[in-house]
Design a protein around this nucleic acid. Structure first.
Lengths: 194, 194
DNA sequence: CGATGATGGTACCGATCGTTCTTAACTTGG
DNA sequence: CCAAGTTAAGAACGATCGGTACCATCATCG
């Protein structure tokens, strides 16, 4: 098969293509259930290229999760800033995840899924999952502080519980309705938080 | 090694011993990461015995999860009946899971974990996880109805979100504090549900 | 145009997986 | 006390896994 210029032989583009394909197949079928050959097929890259760029499957997993958590954080930061200051900015977080739940074949949060698959191990997946939770806690705490909540830290932790619970259930039940359910819960919690 | 009478050669006891050992090692290290040899070692049973009793690893997983969900349901039913009718019975559910969070090396809900590991497949783990969520929904709806809640069905679904969110985060962060956190959330939701 | 380096395809390696089979020791029931 | 059934132990099998080696091909740049 001929190599298209601009797409291949550009190291950065190749790396990004592998990351995207790996994130997709990891997310759909699970990390342990996915072989390197599956990623080769999905990415249109050779094994050699994958190993030269990421060193090992473990390194690829870490790169995928790191890329994913950064993208999610950027999406949230952007959606939050687009909303009006106050409670709307908190609800904007849940409106964003609601659009994820509505995607066909939604499989939950990549970081939590990876940590669950890797349970018992103290590797990158667990650490990145904890960092991801910490991001949500910090984001909510900041927004609650700005909105004048009574106890931003406690309420922030509550919102993370609702967020991850809704995400997990939406994935297990394949039910996009958890988006609006989570929003109702959050509104009730916010009513009691000011 | 000699075979102790009464413990071994009792088919039911052997099956129960394998189930218990498999549940433990599956829970601690994950299902995919666990080999049949690991279960052989943990259960003190031979491969032949495992395959004669459960047919395959998949069959063993299904048996472990089925046993687990039945035990959890029985524990909850018992804890609920021991509590005073009304809101206390709902809080009793969260008091029970709080004791699980406090166990050393808590790894989350076995059914949700299995469904997460098996994501993308429509097998027994996913079905049992959905049944497990349905059990919680039915339990909460019944208790909320008995307590005179305004909208038992909606509130029940909210409580399941909190329950599973707290369980997941407690496992990922190895934080037993999610028990009391969940309880506070539930109290707020219940204040708004009557 | 020729040297360089990245790439895809493929064959291959050792390890491990799920599963089956064999064998000898053991308990149990007649 | 013997036949039947169950067990533990482990060898063995085919498949698959993560990872490596090799080679022809291609774009890029001096």
């Amino acid at each position: 098969m001929p190599v298209k210029a601009g797409e291949r032989l550009d190291p950065e583009a190749t790396k990004a293509r592998i990351l995207k394909a790996a994130a997709d197949v990891f997310g759909r079928r699970g990390i342990h259930a996915t072989g390197i050959s599956d990623i080769v097929e999905a990415a249109g890259a050779s094994k050699l290229t994958i190993y030269r760029n990421f060193g090992s499957k473990e390194g690829l997993v870490e790169a995928v999760l790191t890329d994913r958590t950064h993208r999610v954080r950027a999406w949230h930061d952007q959606a939050v800033e687009a909303a009006a200051p106050g409670r709307d900015r908190i609800l904007a977080v849940f409106d964003l995840v609601a659009t994820w739940y509505a995607e066909a074949g939604f499989r939950g949060c990549a970081m939590m899924n990876a940590a669950t698959e890797d349970r018992g191990q103290d590797g990158a997946p667990r650490r990145l999952a904890q960092d991801h939770l910490a991001f949500y806690r910090d984001l909510f705490e900041r927004l609650l502080s700005e909105a004048g909540a009574l106890d931003p830290r406690t309420t922030a932790r509550q919102l993370v519980v609702v967020l991850e619970g809704a995400t997990l259930i939406s994935a297990v039940d394949q039910d996009p309705g958890l988006g609006t359910e989570a929003r109702v819960i959050v509104e009730t919690l916010l009513d009691a938080a000011f």
